[in-house]
């Protein structure tokens, strides 16, 4: 199941349907909750980043399923197309949708993803059976990641604020790379014949935690009260998932041995 060679369907773990529910519903509910609760008290803006974490984990699982077939061009490409589609769809959704912005973004990302998936299979001849479905998932996950992190940074997903506080200062580039890393890196780091879903997704949670901390630092511009919960919860997610990843790595490894330090020059003689 290497990125370059022929592969097959990914096996085991949580079913794709559950991941879709987790990512899509979790993402949307958190984004709306963050938007409305942050109006009451800006402290709650961190919930938006939790939605982004859900979307990142879902996106990473979709990448895992499609890349198991072997794309021939490396896993990072699919993360970049996810965020490319996602950034176009999410800013379009927020610009025209108003309060329905995140839902419009999801629909736009799904349509763009479906078209690219069909083109990849039918015109480019990639012949990956789940390409259309996963391209939709990856595009939507990318869009929700961007909307979720933007909501935490700006405290709302209304377009005027997002434009002024996230897009114009260039923080959107940070979201682009942090979100893209979250979606593409987990499978890229864990791929191979011994790849396991829980270990890959532990990396996805860990990357989501880092993205959340970054969003928290940016939201410091608006209010310190809003920034602290994001940073603290992000660090907590990062620590728990990294510890989990380390534990699962030890579980999946044939043997874990300490090699000690490198020998000094005298010891070698």
């Amino acid at each position: 199941m290497s990125a370059g060679g022929p592969g097959g369907e990914a096996h085991g773990g949580v079913a794709p349907g559950k991941m879709i529910v987790f990512g899509l519903l979790g993402g949307l509910i958190c984004i709306y909750a963050a938007h409305f609760l942050a109006m009451v008290n800006p402290v709650f803006s961190f919930i938006g980043a939790l939605g982004a974490v859900c979307a990142i984990v879902w996106g990473a699982d979709a990448v895992r399923r499609v890349c198991s077939y072997g794309l021939g061009t490396g896993v990072p490409s699919i993360g970049m197309i996810a965020l490319g589609m996602g950034v176009i769809a999410s800013l379009f959704g927020l610009a025209v949708g108003g309060l329905a912005g995140p839902i419009v973004a999801v629909i736009a990302a799904a349509i763009i993803g479906l078209v690219i998936g069909i083109l990849a299979n039918k015109v480019l001849g990639m012949n990956i059976p789940i390409m259309e479905k996963t391209m939709v998932e990856i595009g939507v996950a990318g869009a929700l990641t961007i909307v979720g992190l933007s909501t935490t940074m700006a405290g709302t997903f209304m377009f005027a604020e997002v434009l002024e506080l996230v897009v114009a200062p260039g923080y959107i580039a940070v979201i682009f790379i942090a979100g893209g890393m979250g979606i593409l890196h987990p499978f890229n780091a864990c791929l191979g014949p011994d790849e396991e879903q829980d270990r890959t997704l532990a990396v996805a949670f860990e990357k989501g935690g880092i993205a959340m901390v970054i969003a928290g630092i940016v939201s410091m511009v608006i209010s310190t009260a809003a920034a602290i919960p994001s940073i603290v919860i992000g660090l907590l997610i990062w620590y728990i998932s990294f510890a989990k990843f380390y534990e699962l790595t030890k579980r999946d490894a044939y043997k874990v041995l300490g090699t000690g330090l490198l020998p000094t020059e005298e010891e070698l003689q």
Binding site: M80, G84, M85, V87, I88, I116
Partner: peptide, 22 residues
Amino acid sequence: IGLASVFAVGIFFVNAVIPSYN
């Protein structure tokens, strides 16, 4: 400028990945 750059980057990535699959 911010919005145009982000859209340009998004369009660029989409169009860089499609030929790389090709």
